[in-house]
């Protein structure tokens, strides 16, 4: 018996390490420890072993069984390791580029717009939208731009034919013509007519001018406009807003300065210059960035606000111009060509 067990173990030790596939292993396992296996057959002989020898033989059988199981386990572990290696394949080359698509990119105008609205959001400005097709009232009349003002010329403003009908752009009077808004200031009027002060809004959006397209002009471009209406709003508050915006955008050292100017819907009116000599391609101590002023009382009257009670300021700027300054872009047309080599630079 003892010899038989030893022979069996020797056989297992010789055969099992040579196994290559899992079926071979299963067959071998059955051969050794299956119901008809050799170990099973030996164990069946236990019955014929004299009673006094049983403890000794039993111990031998158990030891042999444990040893055989260890051989089997080792063989299985070896096979599994081989199988795993086969499944994994060779090691990767970590320096190969990912063949998956390149990351997406936000358009630089979106980046600038979002950065500006984020800055303004922090001081309570809510982002509003308005229609791009406007009427003469919202774009001009309500903003103190009389009907004979040159800005309203068909030479400078795109109009829609008299026959045009818009289901969702409201008119103040039926005689009004539809046009493409020339500035986002029309949103000021719609906002003030819709609600009551205090109002603090920022309205970014697309505007249109009948202009020759060149490096600095484009048939449509984007503006961003702020309006604040409350009691006791002052010129100094307006200056504080602009200082805040551009310090947030460009760093604490950035300064703004006002130059008197004229806009029909603000009084006093100013143009805003920016001191930002570190901006790319700007070699001047001051660069013009936008227009602003205190809302003209006539505008308040027109929307039904009492100018004796309410005061406010408005500020507007071109987003393309800001983006060009921030990124050092020298041609406005690049924004509208969508060359991926351009778009990927701002991700």
């Amino acid at each position: 018996m003892q010899d038989q067990l030893a022979a069996l173990l020797a056989k297992a030790a010789a055969e099992l390490p040579a196994l290559v596939t899992r079926p071979d292993f299963e067959a071998a396992k059955a051969r050794f420890v299956g119901p008809n296996g050799e170990l099973t057959a030996l164990m069946k002989q236990m019955g014929s072993v004299p009673k006094e020898q049983k403890p000794v033989v039993g111990k031998l059988v158990n030891e042999a069984k444990t040893a055989l199981q260890a051989h089997l386990d080792a063989a299985l572990a070896r096979l599994e390791a081989v199988e795993l290696a086969a499944r994994l394949g060779p090691a990767v080359d970590p320096t190969l580029p990912s063949p998956d698509r390149t990351p997406g990119t936000y358009h630089p105008l979106t980046l600038v717009r979002e950065e500006m609205t984020r800055i303004l959001r922090k001081v309570g400005f809510t982002v509003v939208e308005g229609p791009e097709v406007e009427t003469e009232y919202y774009c001009f009349d309500a903003l103190n731009t009389p009907s004979d003002h040159p800005a309203r010329d068909a030479q400078d403003t795109f109009y829609l034919p008299e026959s045009a009908r818009f289901g969702n752009v409201s008119k103040k009077s039926s005689h009004e013509k539809y046009l493409l808004r020339t500035h986002t200031s029309s949103v000021q009027i719609r906002t003030m007519l819709k609600g009551q002060p205090p109002i603090r809004i920022v309205s970014p959006g697309r505007v249109y001018r009948r202009d020759t397209t060149d490096a600095t002009h484009s048939a449509n471009f984007h503006q961003l406009e702020c309006l604040y209406v409350d009691k006791n709003v002052t010129v100094r508050d307006l200056k504080a807003l602009l200082d805040y915006i551009f310090a947030s955008l460009l760093g604490k050292d950035t300064k703004t300065r006002f130059r008197p100017h004229y806009f029909g819907y603000t009084e006093p009116s100013f143009e805003v210059d920016l001191s930002a000599t570190h901006l790319p391609k700007v070699n001047k101590p001051w660069i013009e960035i936008g227009g602003c002023g205190m809302v003209d009382p006539i505008v308040f009257k027109d929307v039904g606000y009492d100018p004796e009670v309410w005061s406010g300021y408005a500020f507007g700027m071109g987003l393309e111009r800001l983006a060009m300054l921030l990124y050092g872009i020298d041609d406005i047309r690049y924004f509208y060509q969508n060359d991926a080599r351009f778009l990927r630079q701002f991700a």
């Binding site: 998956d100 809510t126 939208e129 795109f158 484009s218 924004f335 969508n338």
Partner: peptide, 28 residues
């Protein structure tokens, strides 16, 4: 913020996340 602003912002976030390049084309 105006729901239109939120919609545009979410679309941009979703598509940039999917590897798209955002474009700006003329309206006219």
């Amino acid at each position: 913020d105006d729901p239109i602003v939120l919609f545009n912002r979410k679309v941009a976030d979703a598509f940039v996340g999917q590897g798209f390049n955002e474009c700006v084309n003329y309206t006219l």
